[in-house]
Nucleic acid binder design. Sequence first.
DNA 1: GTATGCTTTCGGC
DNA 2: TTACGGCCGAAAGCATAC
Length: 368
Amino acid sequence: MITNRIITHVDLDYFFAQCEERENPALKDKPVVVCVYSARGGDSGVVSTANYVARQFGVKASLPIVTAKRILKNREAVFLPVNHELYEKVSARVMSVLRRYADKFEQVGIDEAFLDVSQAADGDFEKARTFAQEIKGKILAEEGLTCSVGVGPNKLVAKMASGFQKPDGLTVVKPEEVKRFLFPMPVGKLYGVGSKTAKKMQELGISTAGDLANYDVEKLREIFGKNLGTYYHNAANGLDEEPVQEGKEAEQISRMTTLKQNTRDLNLILPELDRLSEDVHTKILEAHLTIKSVGVMAIMADLSIHSRSRTLEAATNQLEIIQKTARELFQLLLKEETELDVRRAGVKVSGLSHEKGQKAITEFLNAV
DNA sequence: GTATGCTTTCGGC
DNA sequence: TTACGGCCGAAAGCATAC
């Protein structure tokens, strides 16, 4: 049986900065800039996020802190270091409120969630709108936070709807409104269409989602392959069958740090790399995960990013293997990137799965 | 030729 | 001499399999 779905996407506005405003309401009228300070001291680091007062002056995520300070000089701006503990706590409370409204619930990152409200709203988009207003009211009353909400017939449309009006927005896109909503959008804004694909489409005369929707689907399949071509055609038409999945877990875990100084000296880099491996290892043990792949990243003095990764022969949760692999990969990377000093280094694991199967095999081997 | 999966880079916050 | 995190998932690009 085909059932019509109603999906709600909730996106907490300028989340980190809003959490800080919540802790200290006196901040509200001022530019608030949440910063990640690096290990180098001073104002080395970048903006993680900023409230809308700061954004009016062009201060936003990824701007160097010193630049943000220069822009906001004499404007009573408040610069704060990230306080992940606080954000995690607030996020957990908000998510538990949202969960109550959903038949199925999927958290995405720290500040977003999809709610399947098909049953709860009885298939009625106006009911879903009322729910969304209720959700917004509840989050504001209980946690003092605003959010932007999108309601649509699937995740794709709901996500694009929540982004339509920010902050404190509510956009409902009913099935019969999907085309009117999507078609005028630049094709690059469509979920799943990145910059390279957008450029390629532009060259084909496709500049909006509407152009893409009306493009011959067979030609799209020829150009992009059967799967992708079909996906693009459907996405442009606002069609998406992705289910809201409960308890979706992280696919990768990584740790990264800025070195005290730019260097290529392994005596300086490898101890840091080992430490990052330890952090990652602690994380996977806590989550009872095994990993199948290890990777390293290097951000060079010119901020160019390079990475190397390797799939292991068998899943593992052993620190020694992660450290050894990370060391090897990093040395390999340096052998291939011979020009510049390293500024930042990172370790990443992926191919995560729950330990159970692994444990069963270990026990089996021990028994033999 | 297409599908699939792995590796590397990009981009949002 | 000049600025610049840390994390994640998506996107792109390639290798190999069928």
